[in-house]
């Protein structure tokens, strides 16, 4: 723990932690997207899948145990990721208190420059999303364990669909830069890996965003009802 504290105190250490927690969150968001594709197979499949998530590991471990373990891992990752980002942002603001009258960005991409606000949008969305589809607190006709019903009736409200679409576009930009920059933060100098990192980041950012954005669009257009 002492070692970790020492390591995490440095900015380079924080970046490495952001990269590792980012990869874990990415792995999770990818699986989440794949699981959500069951929306297209109909209510039976999606609800069975949701049931499977809760039953995962049982009877070896109690019902929902595996689900809660993964929730705790995710929560730790989210907290570290956001903490490091906040501390580094403050450090960077302090390092450059005065800007230029007129500045050019010859190289920085839009995605890179919006990482901070993009991250805030995604975090706010996650809170809303949990209250919407996990707890049902802000869902007008939430039926516990009928995930299909909750998703479809949820997305029929146009502004709810819009919130999901905007948040997932922000997620796409975040992944586009993050999945590429993590290789540098982790010091991956291997030439064969480096050659593919741009393609890797672009592919996964596009696939995850396209699939996630397709769900509210499918409901709005009546394709999924």
């Amino acid at each position: 723990m002492n070692w970790f504290g020492n390591f995490y105190r440095s900015a380079l250490g924080k970046k490495a932690v952001m990269a590792v927690t980012g990869v874990i969150l990415f792995g999770w968001i990818f699986l989440h997207m794949v699981g959500n594709l069951k929306l297209y197979l109909g209510p039976v499949h999606l609800n069975e899948y949701a049931h499977f998530l809760r039953a995962m590991g049982s009877p070896a471990v109690p019902e929902s145990f595996a689900l809660w373990v993964s929730r705790i891992v995710l929560l730790v990752c989210v907290v570290l990721h956001i903490h490091a980002a906040t501390v580094l942002t403050i450090m960077n603001r302090e390092a450059r208190p005065v800007g230029y009258r007129d500045r050019d960005y010859p190289s920085a991409t839009y995605a890179a420059r919006t990482m901070r606000w993009g991250g805030v949008i995604i975090a706010l969305f996650v809170v809303y999303h949990l209250l919407h589809l996990t707890t049902g607190t802000v869902h007008p006709s939430f039926i516990k364990d009928d995930v299909y019903h909750n998703v479809v009736t949820g997305f029929r409200v146009w502004w709810v669909a819009a919130v999901y679409i905007i948040a997932n576009l922000a997620l796409g930009l975040h992944l586009y830069h993050g999945l590429w920059s993590m290789f540098a933060s982790l010091g991956v100098t291997n030439a064969r890996v480096s050659k593919w990192k741009r393609a890797f980041a672009t592919t996964f950012a596009v696939v995850i965003t396209a699939a996630n954005v397709s769900f509210p669009l499918a409901v709005l257009s009546g394709l999924v009802r």
């Binding site: 440095s10 900015a11 970046k15 960077n92 390092a95 010859p106 920085a108 420059r113 990482m115 933060s185």
Partner: peptide, 12 residues
């Protein structure tokens, strides 16, 4: 790190 900021890979 005592004097300067932290890298965000903008490549500017």
């Amino acid at each position: 790190e005592e004097h300067f900021g932290s890298c965000t890979l903008f490549r500017e």
